[in-house]
């Protein structure tokens, strides 16, 4: 019960007013990957746009139903990474970390997968409840780029769906994958980034210093990495998190 209330408080902090039985899905992706096309083809006209609370950054939310479950899709700002150098990246990261999404959908551009995987891997470091959508498959085919979705799924160890949102290809599969991840309790164990020895050494050293630190929903290894990035904005996020749940 308490957890339910916490979840609601946290979401409302981000301006997300979901009904208790509603499933919240965060939508992440690079700019120019057809993220809004995916958003539109999932939600149709049932959407509204505004700003993130207190920020001049666009926020779009939309709803759709699948298998008698109502989904609330939250469009995160388009970013190249979640390392929080800009306000957009910070919003995207904080929502995935603290906004309690039941699933995060990461949209990748099939025509430049490498750069897009960089973002996907960063999301997978935060949460295992992820569905990967490789969009623009039609465009990639036209350019002679073939994406092996099965291999990708094996490598990332989370559901991967190839789509061409413009023509509606793969959208039903995407809904099914989202439904699986958001409502089933089986947890994926996604691929983790392998760091070089130097970085691993630094993580180990800092993690031991973090042993007794309460980190909320975050794992220690990831928090250590962010502190090593030298970007203290995550600390403010953790602080807000504890403030919200203690009230």
């Amino acid at each position: 019960m308490n957890a339910q209330i916490n979840k609601q408080v946290l979401r409302e902090h981000f301006g997300i007013h979901a009904r208790p039985e509603q499933v919240v899905v965060a939508l992440a992706g690079n700019p120019n990957v057809g993220k809004s096309t995916v958003f539109n083809s999932l939600t149709g006209l049932r959407q509204h746009t505004g700003n993130w609370p207190g920020k001049t950054v666009d926020n779009a939310q939309g709803v759709f139903s699948y298998r008698q479950t109502s989904f609330l899709l939250v469009d995160l700002p388009g970013t190249y990474s979640l390392l929080a150098h800009t306000i957009e990246e910070q919003i995207a990261r904080d929502f995935i970390c603290f906004g309690h999404p039941d699933a995060t959908l990461v949209v990748l551009d099939a025509t430049c997968l490498e750069r897009n995987l960089n973002l996907a891997l960063q999301v997978l470091e935060i949460t295992p409840r992820v569905v990967i959508c490789v969009n623009l498959m039609d465009e990639a085919r036209k350019r002679g780029i073939i994406i092996d979705v099965k291999t990708l799924e094996k490598e990332l160890r989370v559901p991967v769906v190839g789509t061409a949102a413009r023509i509606g290809e793969g959208i039903e599969d995407l809904k099914e994958a989202l439904w699986q991840v958001a409502t089933q309790s089986t947890h994926a164990e996604p691929a983790q980034v392998r760091y070089s020895l130097e970085v691993e050494e630094a993580i180990r050293e800092l993690s031991s210093a973090l042993d007794a630190v309460p980190t909320g929903p975050l794992n220690r290894r990831w928090l250590a990495l962010r502190l090593l990035d030298g970007n203290p904005s995550i600390l403010a996020g953790i602080n807000t998190y504890f403030e919200l749940i203690s009230n």
Partner: peptide
């Protein structure tokens, strides 16, 4: 610098 590196 961060931008350039994030872009790979």
């Amino acid at each position: 610098r961060r931008r350039i590196m994030d872009l790979g």
